[in-house]
Each structure stands twice: as C-alpha cells, then as structure tokens.
Amino acid sequence: MRIASWFFTPLLGFLLFYTCSQLPPPDSTASHISIRYVQKSETETGIRSPAGAVLADYRGFDLLATGSLFFASALCLFLFFPGSSRLEAWFPTLLGLMGFAAALALGFLSLFHGSNFLDYEALTNCVESPQARLDGALILTGSALLGLGGFLLLAIRWTKAPEGPGER
C-alpha cells in the first residue's frame, strides 16, 4: 500500500492541478442559476439566506438523499454489534429502511408529477404547484437531521458495546 501511495498521490496531484488550471476565473463562476438563487430565493422559498434556501429547498432532495444515506449506513453498521440478531435490533432497522423507501417513493412521485410532494392539496388534485415550499424545506431538513440522529445512536451504541476479545 505504501508503494501504491507514492504512485497514486502524484497522479492525483497532476489531476487536481490540471483541473484547477481549467477552472474559470472566480468572478465568472456566478452562473444564471446562482444569480437566481441570490436574487429570488427569499421570495420563492421564504428562507432569507441563499445558502439555506439552496440547502433546504432548491436542493432539498440532495439533502434528503444524504441524510438517508447516513441513516442506511448507520443501520448497516448497527447490525455488526453484539446482540444485533435480536428482534429489538432488527425492528428499528426494518422501520428505518421502510421509512427510507417511503421517502424515496414520495420523492419519485413528486418528480414524476412535477410538483412539490408536500403540497398535499395540489398533489391530490393533480395540479402542478410550487406552493408550500417552506413546509417542504422544514420537513426535508428534519429528514436529514434524522439521518444524522441515526449516526448519533450508532455512536452511543458503539461506546456502550462490551469490551474484551471474546465479545463477538
């Protein structure tokens, strides 16, 4: 591995330097979409900070996917601990995976339908609508926090797992 490191590090260095040399100047990176985020985010989402609006609303599904990924990873690792074959370990795992699948299904329906899936009225009436964005942002942020909560649960379980060579 040490030999591989001396080979791959210069290769990565070359790639990074080449990529940076191809980047446009910092002033020209503000594309039309960035300008829209800065100018209209508060009106469109109700969130003052453009970064907050992008994080929670415009790219809310990315955040949901990231949170779900954390949660799924935490659940997988959770099963490696002693006693994880018991029902009390499998039940939250299955519950979490079902929630993850439900969130993805709702996301798919939303994208397929072209409307915000949290705008229930518009969804049931089959009408395209950009309403209820702030609600959507709050719930998606909550989903991400739940994903991070999965990691915290894992950390607590990890610290409380028994010590010693024969624990598994």
Binding site: D27, A30, S31, Y37, V38, A53, L63, F70, W158
Partner: peptide, 23 residues
C-alpha cells in the same frame, strides 16, 4: 465569488467530515 452552491456543498462536506471523524 458569491455563488451559494459551493458554500452549501462546503457545509454538507463539513457536516459529513465531523460526524464520520467522530465515529
């Protein structure tokens, strides 16, 4: 340069780094 997307990505990467490093 004032673009919000890189700062959002930086926040996400920082959060992931913090959590995973603690673990």
């Amino acid at each position: 340069s004032g673009a919000p997307l890189p700062s959002v990505l930086a926040i996400e990467v920082a959060s992931v780094t913090l959590v995973v490093t603690v673990l």
